[in-house]
Amino acid sequence: MSNVIFLDVDGVLNSKFWDNDHQREISNGKYIDSEAVKLLGSLVKRTNAKIILHSGWRFWFDETMKPLRTEADFLANTMKEAGITIAGVTPDLTTEEIRKTRKFSLVKADEILLWLKDNPSANWVVLDDLELHNSEIEKHQVKTDAEVGLTTKDVEKAITILLGN
């Protein structure tokens, strides 16, 4: 069994604050804050955890985790530079209505729990800026602030959840 980080992207690896100062990068499909990715890299290294993408961004990768869009390619390359790879994705329980309204938070908890049922893991943490409406998930979630994205404090909290320190 291994340590697992369930990763959301928007509001974790980018933020409203970062978006405001990086409009040119965004127009080129570069929606990722490389400093947040470096923080994620330190979390992965310190916990020896694998990344499972539970973000809507998972639809931008094929089944072999090959990027299908410019944004996903940039994410994968930025993560690679930080020594991180995406090990997999959560199952898709979305409906047409959820995809249309972008209310992914309604099924994210169930997707994570289903993944865990199929892949028992010793310790796990969820990095997401959204309320996921599930008490079991809540105990394992580091809820990032979408205004600023992943912070050092968030990483320390995630380490405590994963390693019990």
Rank of each mutant, 00 (worst) to 15 (best):
1 M>C: 11
2 S>G: 13
2 S>F: 11
4 V>C: 08
6 F>G: 01
7 L>G: 01
8 D>K: 00
9 V>N: 01
9 V>F: 03
10 D>H: 06
12 V>M: 03
13 L>V: 14
13 L>Y: 04
17 F>H: 09
18 W>Q: 00
19 D>K: 11
19 D>P: 01
20 N>M: 12
20 N>V: 08
21 D>H: 14
21 D>I: 09
23 Q>W: 08
23 Q>S: 10
28 N>Y: 09
29 G>A: 08
30 K>S: 11
33 D>L: 02
35 E>F: 01
35 E>Y: 00
35 E>N: 04
37 V>P: 02
38 K>E: 00
38 K>W: 00
39 L>G: 02
42 S>K: 13
43 L>W: 11
43 L>G: 10
45 K>L: 15
46 R>L: 15
47 T>P: 08
49 A>C: 10
49 A>T: 09
49 A>Q: 05
50 K>M: 13
53 L>K: 02
54 H>M: 08
56 G>S: 09
58 R>P: 03
60 W>G: 07
62 D>E: 06
63 E>F: 07
64 T>R: 07
64 T>I: 07
65 M>S: 07
66 K>H: 08
66 K>M: 10
67 P>D: 07
68 L>T: 08
68 L>N: 08
68 L>H: 10
68 L>Q: 11
70 T>G: 03
73 D>K: 10
73 D>M: 13
75 L>P: 03
77 N>H: 13
77 N>V: 14
77 N>I: 14
78 T>P: 05
79 M>V: 03
79 M>H: 03
79 M>P: 02
79 M>K: 01
81 E>Q: 12
81 E>T: 12
84 I>R: 02
86 I>L: 01
87 A>G: 04
87 A>R: 01
89 V>F: 04
90 T>W: 05
90 T>L: 07
91 P>F: 10
93 L>M: 12
93 L>N: 11
95 T>Q: 10
96 E>N: 11
97 E>P: 00
98 I>W: 04
101 T>N: 08
102 R>W: 04
103 K>W: 05
108 K>P: 00
109 A>M: 02
110 D>P: 03
111 E>Q: 14
111 E>G: 09
111 E>F: 10
111 E>C: 12
112 I>N: 02
113 L>A: 09
114 L>P: 04
116 L>E: 08
118 D>W: 12
118 D>A: 13
118 D>I: 10
119 N>E: 06
119 N>M: 10
121 S>A: 15
121 S>P: 07
124 W>G: 08
126 V>M: 06
126 V>F: 04
128 D>N: 03
128 D>S: 04
129 D>P: 05
130 L>N: 06
131 E>N: 14
131 E>D: 15
132 L>V: 02
132 L>A: 03
133 H>G: 09
133 H>F: 14
134 N>L: 14
136 E>T: 14
137 I>V: 15
137 I>D: 05
137 I>M: 13
138 E>F: 11
138 E>C: 11
139 K>M: 14
140 H>I: 15
140 H>W: 15
140 H>A: 15
141 Q>M: 15
142 V>T: 06
146 A>R: 07
147 E>L: 06
148 V>N: 00
149 G>H: 00
149 G>A: 06
150 L>H: 00
152 T>K: 13
153 K>T: 12
153 K>I: 06
156 E>N: 15
157 K>Y: 11
158 A>K: 02
158 A>P: 08
158 A>E: 12
159 I>A: 10
159 I>V: 15
160 T>C: 15
162 L>H: 04
162 L>Y: 05
163 L>M: 15
164 G>F: 14
165 N>Y: 13
165 N>S: 14
